[in-house]
Nucleic acid binder design. Sequence first.
DNA 1: CCGATATATCGATATTTTTCGATATATCGA
DNA 2: TCGATATATCGAAAAATATCGATATATCGG
Lengths: 103, 103
Amino acid sequence: MNKNYSRAIPEDWRSMAAVFVALGDEHRQRILLTFEPGERLNVGQIAEVSTLARSTVSHHLKILRQAGVLGSEKIGKEVYFWVDKAWLKTVFANVAGYIEHSA
Amino acid sequence: MNKNYSRAIPEDWRSMAAVFVALGDEHRQRILLTFEPGERLNVGQIAEVSTLARSTVSHHLKILRQAGVLGSEKIGKEVYFWVDKAWLKTVFANVAGYIEHSA
DNA sequence: CCGATATATCGATATTTTTCGATATATCGA
DNA sequence: TCGATATATCGAAAAATATCGATATATCGG
């Protein structure tokens, strides 16, 4: 038993945690499911199909981007988002590794 | 672009979501990190090393158990918990599969 | 430069989650 | 059976998060 409950959360855990929080919300899951493979979508397109206000969609996209789940790029007036597959694969490989070796 | 934002979340996603919510909380991460490989711990042992009240620890353990992250068994007066490696591996394999094929 | 458009941010409110102490339930040992 | 112990549940308060509409910022076209 590891008794040092209050120690710092390991660094690779912290990035995982942000992904967990991001993907734990149902609206953010729905946003993720809106993307088709390799697709890039802007805020307006996502807000259009969602049931939420634009500012709320913007908020959720920010959380997804900060967690690394989505990448983003501003092109002209619009900001395009895409699913960052590489990052997600890295994160889940880390989690799988932790489970295999430390749990 | 998938326009059906309000459709039901896929079944395998819902179990993943519960795991994401469970692991998104810092105290629940700390609880998970308290377990050493293969170890079984009861509520009192976890509450002992944590900074939280027993009832709060009990609450977090319930969330972790419902998400399948932990298994539990009552032995006498005590309830023992352990990390359900097999379930976590299944969940993260599903996530990795989704990312690979649908993102 | 000006008006229109896309997005982000702000401020207030609503909802959800966390937290604790008190109480309820189950089990053990005397 | 009675008292002690372990855990779960309940109810209320506190904290965090989500939500919206209004406003600010940036960019484009004319």
